[in-house]
Design a protein around this nucleic acid. Structure first.
Lengths: 354, 354
DNA sequence: TTTTAAAATGTGTACGCACACATTTACTTT
DNA sequence: AAAGTAAATGTGTGCGTACACATTTTAAAA
């Protein structure tokens, strides 16, 4: 009735060799005669052997250490969410003897990034999850990882030259297009659309440019309304910040604001609320507490969810799959571009899994 | 450095008893003296014992059989997707000795539902995943399952009285509200909105009513535009179906169509495309192949993703967690109400995981 | 006290695999 | 032909848990 799973022992019996030989064949450990190899391979072709991952893991009995490198969660709620994903992964894998250690660097400090990465490298973990926000500093780091054969997974920021085990994140260009689509929806009067760069640090620039490119491209291709799309660089620490913003909002032809960072979204929303121009469309990023409040209040119209928490926890899972279960991992895992509105936001918050 | 995980053996040593006794305490098997119980409990309070799930599962070495009861995939692409989720789960869990068997019933036949459920019950599986589309017929079935202590998980359709291990699905009322929001977005001229019931069978009615209620509620609460919301019941098998539909589309005041089933969405889209009224908003459900085509072509404006595939596969996972890993499962797992547009649709299709 | 039964506790094996190590085989070299 | 060496193959143990079963302890009955 219930057909038993095939074990190594069964293969050995069928092939007329010992389990040791089968093991060597399965793992290409060498030290197998051509004849034995042939016999085992023949059996393997006949039957569908699926190794028992539980037994495999239990048998090898290794304690893996995984290092996660990301910006300090205290500096930015976006990274705080990512850090929650790491915590979640820690709990999930602790009982399998997998240690996940967090290494933080200063979001604004290239040097700190570099130092942290080197520190991790010296600790020689079995796998690394890293958010390589500083492009130029990251390249030599990857070189190090590769030299010492430490598998690493990128998340949030893609650097194709890095040749990582896998990249987890979103298609930023397409993300910009989604932002544009949400901005364009139902707009019928021509006017100005502002793309805001709020409190952006150098390392965001690649991110931002990609999104912005997508945003503009969409309007070139799709929109029936002729919009002026203008860029604004603003720094909340600048004393004139609010005045600048107010001038922008006073423009009666302003139709919408697109902010491509999660933190920037919250800042923009606070000013828009303060000066009460709720008629203009505001499209931003991520389910930060603050953003949720503004979304519910109708200040923010749409959020695009980047899901840093799940990006982080899935990154660890990929490393575990690679190290422990010897499973293949997808080379890129692009997250869906989730559109969050007033009406569906609660459904996203309810479940921790999705 | 790497602190080793605590094993049963360690607890036994610390408590001064044997592993057998610890095992009996851990699993409340009885046959333990009050003193021994006390000693073990004392140790357990001190340390944080996390059983090794791998070893537990390997050790118990049980072959579980799980039955999945759902409508025939050939009758409806929605259920075809759900069935894909089952197939995926079959592959995922096969190597752990878990057998997932599919039991299909006729989507239109209450009797078939009942018979299939009874057949499953006679087979006495260790767990059951069921889409209880027929409310009245389902109640006595659940009674049977409970009597024989077979844990069961509901998906797609919720029946709170069933007291299942867990329910997986969406909040239909809120789903209707999301549909309404998408319908309302950027509409500025008053007119008619049609709620279409296409090819609906009796068992969809609860589903539909919930969504429709949410849909209407939203407009009552939120919309600034005064819409007439009208219901239409149509059957594609009816010879006059297309004429009826055409009459509807000829109404120049028609602003939008809301179709609450996945199959109905495809049918509606085909007619809308044929008669070329692409100016009206079309909001429907699910990423069926056909719907995707119409979405990309701009006939469908928004799809709400119910993700039947993931609902099904997660349902099996919950049962496995319960049976095999003795892990707790959430009593309800409400899926996010995913909004799919032309611009983000590809990002949803790319990854199989999400 | 001895017998008997029940309760409590301990021991051993299996789960399927990995891996170290022992043993056997095949082939050179002297 | 004997010895030596490397390659090939087999055996055994451990991973942490579950569970059956053997053994010991305790308490009651004869």
């Amino acid at each position: 009735m219930v057909e038993k799973n095939i074990r190594i022992k069964d293969i050995a019996r069928l092939a007329g060799v010992s389990v040791g030989t089968v093991d060597r064949v399965l793992h290409n450990r060498g030290r197998v005669s051509p004849e034995a190899l042939q016999k085992v391979t023949a059996v393997m072709e006949q039957i569908d052997y699926k190794p028992n991952l539980l037994a495999r893991t239990l048998g090898s009995n290794k304690n893996y250490r995984i290092a996660a490198i990301l910006p300090d969660p205290n500096q930015d709620p976006y990274w705080a969410q990512a850090s929650l994903g790491i915590t979640q992964a820690q709990l999930e894998w602790a009982q399998y003897g997998i240690q996940v250690e967090l290494f933080l660097f200063d979001l604004l400090d290239r040097d700190s990034f570099q130092k942290t990465a080197h520190r991790v490298h010296l600790a020689r973990p079995d796998g690394i999850l890293i958010a390589p926000t500083f492009y130029h500093e990251a390249l030599p780091i990857f070189e190090l990882f590769r030299e010492t054969d430490i598998p690493f997974v990128l998340f949030n920021t893609n650097i194709p030259e890095a040749q990582p085990l896998s990249f987890i994140g979103q298609n930023l260009h397409q993300s910009g297009r989604v932002g544009a689509e949400l901005m364009n929806l139902g707009q019928h009067e021509k006017g100005t659309l502002a793309v805001l760069h709020i409190d952006e640090d150098i390392q965001d620039s690649v991110h931002l440019l990609e999104k912005e490119r997508g945003f503009r491209e969409y309007f070139k291709e799709k929109s029936k309304v002729a919009f002026d799309i203008v860029d604004f660089n603003m720094n909340p620490k600048d004393p004139s910040f609010e005045d600048q913003f107010k001038t922008l909002l006073d423009d009666k032809s302003l139709r919408g604001l697109f902010v491509s960072t999660s933190k920037g979204t919250a800042v923009a929303a606070s000013i828009v609320e303060k000066y009460g121009r709720q008629d203009i469309r505001l499209v931003g990023y991520d389910l930060l507490e603050e953003n949720l409040r503004y979304l519910r209040a109708g200040v923010i119209d749409f959020l695009i969810n980047q899901n840093p928490k799940r990006q982080a926890s899935l990154g660890i899972s990929h490393l575990v799959n690679h190290l422990m279960f010897k499973k293949g991992t997808p080379s890129t895992d692009l997250f869906p571009l989730e559109v969050i509105t007033q009406q569906n936001v609660e459904s996203y918050l309810g479940s921790g899994i999705h």
